[in-house]
């Protein structure tokens, strides 16, 4: 693999830590999203903390239990909970109940399509709701590990044990099965619609080139991949799982096959989360132990956003790539304006 940098510690890196605004969200957070200019910190249970341009925090009750998953487009945040409810929140703080599982089972995964169509899963069943509020469901052989809409067309990838099912909710031929042994816990499409990548229970990724379903094994990581993010131009997939950020090259028609991934920003601890800036070739990486770095993809140059003690549980950019938000397991949170 290509290593850009030498061994070093966080304290030798140029820092913008003084410019980070800390926010009193007052609760542990599982994810952070942006609704326009507002940051929405999704709590471990019950609440979302909305933060406006003036950094004022207002809490909104969204679930009556643990919050398990959250996705957003620019206008709404959609969450599933262990109360069996699927809920949407807009930036004005208005909550809409979208669906309730009759048996109060956990809503484990949720995905949004650019067209406003949404998908969620309960156990082995994936649901899709069209814009005119028509629901369809599809059952896979085992519990759904992850959901992702293809960037083009109406196609939902459902990750599960031993592979991924591609479901076409509007087609007569309604599904295609991509088999690969093992447990697939997360799934993403490449922005150019050419590749599908899953994070597995083992420390490995698996990919398919969708034109011919050719397999791509991405192995050699010391830890399980819990965080994946596509670079701004869609040519590389950044992942956690090692003591450096791993950048898998997807620029050519073969994807990462036969190529070395790039290893950026090594630290003595493992990368826990990655978030690529949506406009520029930089990414934010959070490490075990709580350090966050900004890393330039072209040369691996690093800037320290924060050092710390508490684990980073959420990390995200706004759509314009001008604001970075993060939260830590102990209830701390902060934002940085570029």
């Amino acid at each position: 693999m290509i290593r850009f940098d030498r061994e070093k510690n966080a304290d030798s890196i140029p820092s913008v830590a003084g410019r980070v605004r800390s926010l009193a969200v007052g609760m542990p957070v599982i994810a952070v999203h942006f609704l326009g200019d507002h940051a929405a910190f999704v709590g471990v249970e019950e609440n979302v903390a909305l933060v406006n341009e003036a950094d004022e925090v207002s809490k909104v009750a969204v679930h009556s239990g643990g919050i398990l998953c959250a996705v957003s487009d620019d206008s709404r945040l959609v969450m599933g909970g262990d109360d069996g409810k699927l809920v949407a929140l807009d930036k004005k703080g208005e909550v809409t109940l979208l669906a309730t599982d009759p048996k109060r089972r956990w809503i484990d995964n949720v995905a949004l399509h650019a067209d406003g169509v949404m998908a969620w899963s309960v156990g082995k069943t994936a649901f899709v709701r069209s814009r005119n509020a028509e629901d369809k469901s599809f059952e896979v052989p085992s519990t759904v590990g992850g959901l992702a809409f293809a960037p083009k067309g109406m196609r939902l990838a459902i990750a599960h044990y031993n592979g991924v099912t591609l479901w076409f909710p509007n087609m007569a031929v309604d599904s295609e099965f991509l088999e690969w042994a093992g447990s697939h816990l997360d799934v993403v499409f490449s922005p150019d619609n050419k590749f599908l990548v899953t994070a597995m229970h083992e420390p490995a990724l698996h990919g398919w080139r969708l034109a011919d379903n050719r397999h791509m094994r991405m192995v050699g990581l010391p830890g399980r991949v819990r965080s994946m993010s596509w670079s701004a131009n869609g040519k590389a997939l950044a992942t956690s799982g090692a003591d450096t950020v791993i950048l898998w090259p997807f620029a050519s028609k073969d994807g990462p096959m036969g190529k070395e991934p790039t290893m950026l920003a090594p630290l003595p601890t493992r990368v826990a989360r990655v978030a690529c800036n949506p406009k520029q070739d930089i990414l934010a990486a959070a490490y075990d132990g709580g350090t966050i770095l900004l890393v330039r993809l072209s040369d691996g140059a690093e800037i320290l956003v924060k050092s710390g003690t508490a684990e980073v549980s959420a990390l995200a950019w706004n759509a314009g790539g001008t604001q970075l938000a993060f939260a830590t397991e102990d209830g701390g949170a902060g934002m940085l304006k570029l």
Binding site: S142, Y161, A181, G182, H201, A204
Partner: peptide, 10 residues
């Protein structure tokens, strides 16, 4: 509620 899904390790 759980489903007792037995997975083989790879």
């Amino acid at each position: 509620g759980a489903d007792e899904e037995i997975f083989e390790m790879n």
